[in-house]
Computed example of a mutant assay.
Amino acid sequence: MDSTEKKRLAMTGDMSRAACATRLRAAITLTGMTQTEIATQINRKASSITNQIKGDQFPSRELMNYLYEEHRVDFNFMMAGSHNQLPGDVAEKLFEILASPT
């Protein structure tokens, strides 16, 4: 996959709630956890995660911090789609998820 395709899939530079929600859905899929499990990890209600995934809210700092500390998905990717700093294995999995039809 070339860099143009990666930028398209990650919506690099797009900091809208919709773009953040797309990246968040991919990151949550990467974890293999349910929304409820993640909510428990960050001491929030599952409905909060649902609102963030739907794009009703931006991803919370607590959620992004959890994704970074436990799954190596960093803030730059979550908020702006910047992917060059992601660990190779994480980037590979995220792009597989983003490229797969939903």
Rank of each mutant, 00 (worst) to 15 (best):
A91M: 15
E62Y: 07
L63T: 02
E62R: 05
D2H: 07
M1N: 12
L67F: 03
D2G: 04
A46V: 09
L24R: 02
Y66P: 07
G32P: 00
M79S: 15
T102W: 09
I42E: 00
N76L: 11
Q35E: 12
N43C: 10
N76A: 10
M1A: 03
M11A: 04
D14M: 12
F75W: 13
S60Y: 02
R44Y: 04
E92K: 15
R8W: 09
R17V: 14
E96C: 10
N43T: 05
G55N: 08
N43F: 08
E37T: 03
G32D: 05
A99T: 06
P101I: 00
M1V: 08
S47T: 13
Y68L: 09
A10C: 02
N43G: 04
L24P: 04
G88W: 10
G55H: 08
S16C: 02
N84D: 07
R17Y: 14
T4R: 06
E69T: 10
E37K: 05
E69R: 12
N76C: 09
S3M: 12
P87V: 15
M79Y: 15
T29P: 07
N76M: 07
F95C: 05
L30N: 01
S60L: 05
T4L: 08
G32Y: 10
A46C: 13
T31I: 12
F95D: 13
G13W: 05
T31N: 03
D56I: 13
S100P: 00
C20N: 15
E69V: 05
F58R: 08
P59A: 07
G13E: 01
A10D: 08
N65E: 14
A21H: 03
A91L: 02
L94P: 01
K7M: 00
M79P: 12
T50D: 04
A18F: 11
R8T: 06
N43W: 08
I28C: 11
N76G: 03
F95Y: 14
A46Y: 01
S100H: 12
Q52N: 04
L86S: 03
R44E: 04
E69D: 05
I38C: 02
I49T: 05
G81A: 10
R23M: 15
Y66W: 11
A39D: 08
E96S: 13
V73S: 03
L30K: 11
A39F: 01
Q85P: 10
Q52C: 00
A26M: 08
P101H: 11
M1F: 10
R8Y: 13
T36I: 13
L67D: 00
L94C: 06
